[in-house]
Design a protein around this nucleic acid. Structure first.
Lengths: 231, 231
DNA sequence: TGTTCAATGTCGCAA
DNA sequence: TTGCGACGTTGAACA
């Protein structure tokens, strides 16, 4: 990993064209040749970048660039597309290289897949007497998170989100429309389950006769141990 | 901006819980207090991070941590939520600080707007004899990208996306429902135009009687020169 | 390898 | 502030 602090300008062309005026920034060159251009604020997203696989070529600037005060031209070309990032370096304030080695990577806990597993294992959270049909029940427009039967023998389709907003209700609505065309399943009732449900999403769901279920992650993890901590 | 190369481990808790085993990484501390934890590969996304507004507090490790070889504990606490990132630093290999100043920011040249302009200028891509009514045709739920007339005098509503997925079809469906209530316009036919249309989106569109049109950006740009470079 | 869906999404705009 | 859609989305799982 190479760290360069420099005043520079940049041009990106590829899926869009973008220009970055002259300013002092961090140029981060990773071992795979990818380049990140960070300012001293904003979020984790760089101002501009090139993803691997790509190749960095540093050249001496041409006369016109020299005239503008450029001391180095960095051209970063993507290997598989014609995405291209050209950085004109005006002044280098810092330049250091470091050996980092491979990273073991991030271990996550508490994502949607985990909620789905736990709700399948604790299916009676839908109501006493409910039973699991299957997780990831396939349909023509994609799998339904959970399909279950209620005590009366009716079918229940469950859409699970970490954070429940309108998109999730729309998604479940499409599933319900499709599932209800199947005479073996119909009538199918919908339940929208999430750790948190936005008021608008709840209104829309209720308006469409879809039930809402808040999932308490900690409580569910307390009951169920199949999703034992990963670390 | 502060750049630290160090062997470290990290724990994030907030919207999810995540753990990062011991390895050598870049710790990037921005002027606003935000922290990025980068490995020497992957893409522009850090392994772990804390977005502003947040506060970094460096403390001397407790006895148990000292036992593990920790020399510094970095606690990064988000100001408005209980998101928290704790980094245990085992060895510091590099540490430097740099004054960058404010960044003028990125200047973009859009794509969807460009597609819209070009399709308006080449409206017969909808079929011979079509004519443009207007771009950004206003409705109660937002502007329709393009409204046109077909040779038979029928109305055509066009929704343009760079990448056509189900959301775009849903959006166009809402417009069509509304437009078809207007006796001056009805019946209104829908066309979903995109550089690329996902199979599921095409199925949904076809099922609803909405036409699909693939836009060839390069071919359109070759014909039309109204979208000259903005800088 | 391509496709589909989640994401600690982030970002920008408008009501 | 909140809602909504776009993103050079990125990333992971699965066919």
């Amino acid at each position: 990993m190479r760290l360069v602090i420099a005043t520079c300008s940049a041009e990106y062309s590829g899926r869009l064209n973008a220009h970055l005026p002259l300013a002092t920034r961090l140029l981060l060159v990773k071992a795979d040749g990818s380049v990140l251009l960070h300012s001293d604020g904003g979020s984790y997203k760089p101002l501009n970048w090139m993803s691997p696989p790509c190749k960095l070529v540093v050249t001496v600037p041409d006369d016109a660039a020299l005239e503008r005060g450029v001391v180095q031209t960095w051209a970063v070309q993507h290997a598989k597309s014609d995405d291209r990032l050209v950085i004109e370096v005006h002044e280098v304030l810092h330049d250091s290289a470091h050996e980092l080695g491979l990273d073991p990577g991030l271990i996550k806990d508490g994502v949607e897949a985990h909620l789905q597993m736990m709700l399948a294992a604790q299916i009676e959270l839908l109501g006493t007497g409910h039973s699991l049909v299957r997780r990831e029940f396939p349909t023509a427009i994609g799998p339904v998170d959970i399909l279950a039967k209620d005590p009366a023998g009716g079918t229940v389709a469950v859409e699970i989100k970490r954070r429940g907003d309108i998109d999730g209700v729309e998604q479940l609505t499409r599933y319900l429309e499709l599932l209800n065309r199947d005479p073996h399943l119909a009538p199918v009732r919908g339940v929208f389950a999430a750790q948190e449900i936005k008021p608008q999403a709840r209104v829309l769901a209720t308006d469409r006769g879809i039930g809402c279920l808040i999932l308490d992650y900690d409580a569910m993890r307390g009951v169920d141990d199949s999703g034992a901590r990963l670390f």
